[in-house]
Design a protein around this nucleic acid. Structure first.
Length: 198
DNA sequence: TAGGCCATCTGGTCCT
DNA sequence: AGGACCAGATGGCCTA
């Protein structure tokens, strides 16, 4: 009963007809423009139907092009988000992260990795040994750094300060040697590792 | 069935 | 002028 319009109800395709009444608002009705209606009425009163309709067609075409660009823009954004999901630790049975979860998880993951590097550097400084390489077991299924152009160096900006929305993050090791927060990722899954921002 | 997530449309604003 | 970016609105789909 519901779907009078299919899920792909892109009005671009469904409303090719150039109706004078301009089906705007009949379906969407998103933002009722109080100014628009009087304007149209004013134009209509002038009786220049032909030129006005061409203006409307031009306007409509511009809108359709803008819609298309906006759609592509959002698709690009989603592609970037998918790429980000791809470099995050993943598990087959884990459901796909939502957009906000992906961003939060990536943020916390980067923070955890930089913490690991910072701690390793600290330990290396104490012992005089060369800096420890990250054990693969620490970064469970983590992507190989730099394999996708990511710069992985700590670059001196080892901000150990977890951002405000990471304060309650499980990725806050209680002890300097405690790396378990990274290993917890597969244990508890992403959603526990991607805490809310609040 | 309610709520969350998502895609799309749309108008406004800023930038080139 | 046209494109990019943004935020609000809307409706569909899915899951608990």
């Amino acid at each position: 009963m519901d779907s009078v319009f299919s899920d792909t109800d892109t009005s671009c395709d469904l409303f090719p007809h150039t109706d004078d009444e301009d089906s705007r608002g009949s379906v969407r009705g998103a933002s009722p423009q109080p100014d628009q209606q009087p304007l149209q009425q004013k134009k209509r009163r002038r009786g220049r139907g032909r030129s006005d309709s061409t203006a409307q067609v031009v306007k409509k075409n511009r809108r359709l092009k803008a819609n298309d660009r906006e759609r592509n823009r959002m698709h690009n954004l989603n592609d970037a988000l998918d790429a980000l999901r791809g470099v995050l630790p993943a598990f087959p049975d884990e459901t796909k992260l939502t957009k906000i979860e992906t961003l939060r998880f990536a943020h916390n993951y980067i923070w955890a990795l930089s913490e690991t590097i910072r701690i390793a550097d600290l330990q290396a400084g104490k012992t005089g040994d060369p800096p420890l390489l990250l054990s693969p077991s620490l970064l469970v299924e983590a992507p190989s750094p730099g394999s996708d152009g990511c710069s992985w160096s700590s670059s001196g900006s080892s901000s150990s300060s977890s951002p405000a929305y990471c304060a309650s993050s499980p990725g806050s090791p209680s002890a300097p040697e405690d790396y378990s927060f990274l290993q917890q990722v597969p244990v508890f899954g992403f959603r526990s590792f991607a805490p809310g921002i609040y």
